[in-house]
């Protein structure tokens, strides 16, 4: 309703965007409906399920409840930007352990785990459970996610096939 003509600037996966949108529009719908980045999912709209998880300046946010104005001038990282080719240690560990079932929540799970590994490169089980508590999986892949986060930590430590910059992005 504001019909403000001022444009909003955000960077998503390194690409700058000038947006003419309602500044209260949640980041989720900007990503999905305006920018066409559909890897980030809608699951509840109330920050209860974690399917919409992205990073803003490296911090985990639930994009369904984050007005896009709060990302103004910041760097947004989505699943599409985590790696170019699926080589992030989490993505490799996820495939190695066959984590996904329907796959819908997995982008949010991986984005949450990516922020955890950046903060705690070798997280304890408690740290994993605490960090991942906001991410629901109705198919029930939790035991594999737990193992895959630890496996990714080991892969990242080995440094094999990973240029390092992705984990710290």
């Amino acid at each position: 309703m504001s019909d403000s003509t001022a444009k909003l600037s955000i960077r998503v996966n390194g690409v700058p965007h000038q947006l003419d949108v309602d500044p209260d529009m949640p980041l989720l719908w900007v990503l999905r409906d305006v920018l066409g980045l559909t890897g980030t999912k809608y699951g509840c709209g109330q920050a209860l399920c974690g399917a919409c998880t992205v990073h803003v300046d490296g911090q985990v946010v639930r994009s369904c409840c984050t007005p896009v104005r709060r990302a103004e001038g910041r760097e947004v990282l989505t699943i599409e930007g985590l790696s170019e080719d699926g080589s992030h240690p989490l993505q490799r560990a996820w495939l190695e352990l066959g984590v996904p079932q329907c796959g819908f929540c997995q982008a949010g799970q991986i984005m949450t785990a990516a922020a955890l590994l950046r903060k705690h490169p070798r997280p304890s089980l408690e740290q994993v459970e605490q960090s991942m508590a906001g991410n629901l999986c109705r198919c029930g892949t939790y035991t594999r996610i737990r193992a895959a986060v630890q496996r990714a930590a080991a892969l990242a430590a080995e440094g094999s096939g990973n240029n390092g910059s992705k984990v710290s992005s």
Partner: peptide
């Protein structure tokens, strides 16, 4: 192997909402 695994973990699998 999980055939669609790579598409899932890269956010490229097209669901109905996508």
């Amino acid at each position: 192997p999980l055939h669609d695994g790579p598409a899932y973990v890269m956010g490229k699998a097209v669901f109905g909402a996508d």
